[in-house]
């Protein structure tokens, strides 16, 4: 008697149950396979992010061929400056040394990026007001970029 009068509620419950069931089925089908592999994210995302191509080969790659530069550089003030910091991204060159040749650098523009005097730079960092210092002359007229200290007859200046 009572159950009969609540029949419409059971029908409604049936509609809800069907909805929930469909949701569970659809969900199990749509959740990416690798989700939860390492945590609450798509495990394949790691592989995809790792696959991004490299632009900067890294100094280790440069040094494999350019050991002469490494020797020169390691004795000078620029020992800690990595190759591509000045030469730019050269992974393509490292991939194909013959086919891709790096651009020649303009020291008049390049060196001031670091060495132009600025009151906010650490005081012990070597810096010059470039116009006063060289009057627009390219830096490599006097300095060797890979070992920039100028050696005079009396020793290092």
């Amino acid at each position: 008697m009572k159950l009969k009068d609540a029949a419409h509620l059971f029908r409604l419950a049936g509609v809800f149950a069907a909805g929930i069931l469909i949701f569970i089925l659809v969900r199990s089908y749509l959740v990416p396979k690798s989700f939860g592999q390492y945590g609450h994210f798509r495990g394949d995302a790691l592989t995809e992010i790792k696959a991004q191509p490299i632009s900067y080969a890294g100094h280790q790659a440069c040094e494999a061929c350019h050991s002469d530069v490494l020797d020169l550089k390691s004795k000078g003030k620029h020992a800690q400056v990595n190759c591509e910091a000045c030469h730019g991204p050269l992974a393509k060159h490292a991939d194909d040394p013959g086919g891709v040749t790096p651009e020649k650098l303009d020291t008049a523009k390049l060196c001031v990026r670091c060495h132009e005097a600025n009151s906010a730079k650490p005081k012990k960092f070597p810096q010059v007001a470039s116009m006063e210092h060289s009057g627009g002359l390219a830096c490599n007229e006097c300095h060797t970029p890979h070992s920039p200290a100028i050696v005079t007859e009396g020793g290092k200046k």
Partner: peptide, 10 residues
């Protein structure tokens, strides 16, 4: 390799 920023920090 190290990061691009670290690689290029002079």
């Amino acid at each position: 390799l190290t990061t691009a920023c670290c690689e290029n920090c002079p």
